[in-house]
Amino acid sequence: MKILVCISNVPDTTTKITFTNDNTQFNTSGVQFIVNPYDEIALSKAIELCEGGKGTVTVINVGESTTDPTIRKALAIGADDAVRINAEPRDAYFTAYQIAEYAKTTDFDMILCGRESIDYNGSQVAAMVGEFLDIPSISIIKKLDFDGTTATIEREIEGGKEVVSVTGKFIASCAEGTAVPTIPNMRGIMSARSKPLQVVEAKEIAQISKVTKFETPAPRGAVKLIPAESAAQLIELLHTEAKVI
């Protein structure tokens, strides 16, 4: 069995988000980059499914050489090898196209992604790869069992869950619950350096979306404090002032 896991390189969750160049660019100065937290879940699931020599896990990243430390982190967690498609991930369409083109050149059983990357929160790449490859895509899953031929997958829906079964190649985007993120151990970290990281060139495709500007949410006014003894006032304020109840 061969599992491909797509990982994106994103700012650490505690990053204070600021912009430069007249709010047209994300300010990366001093920012720590990490494996997208959902992709860690996807990777951990893939490693779990391949445990005991049942298969191999290849991580794929569309990125420039600056993302290599993040790829090494994924190798330290336990991926067997890595592929970096050498290009700036311009938008989800571009990224998904590159991943799909690479997937066409290799044999695989499933592709796992994260539910969304925490920078642009697109939730787009997985389903787009599915469409480019014309295979089923299951988005926002929280459970995945695979018996070697058929995958039984639980995906999140409003107020509940749906159970889907797929036989044959598929792609899924993983949310919390799918697996417990694996923490790299010393052996993993040591061996990550010598695991293969293949760099392939990107294919040309027209760019159809572009972030032209960033905005930050308007700051809220000062908090209005209500004394604990007269908490009941809150209900009145929510009704008459905030008009939300």
């Binding site: 929160n121 979306s209 972030v211 905005e215 949410p217």
Partner: peptide, 12 residues
């Protein structure tokens, strides 16, 4: 964008 920490104006 950025999990609610910002908005991205996206041109199509």
């Amino acid at each position: 964008a950025f999990s609610g920490k910002a908005f991205a104006i996206t041109a199509l």
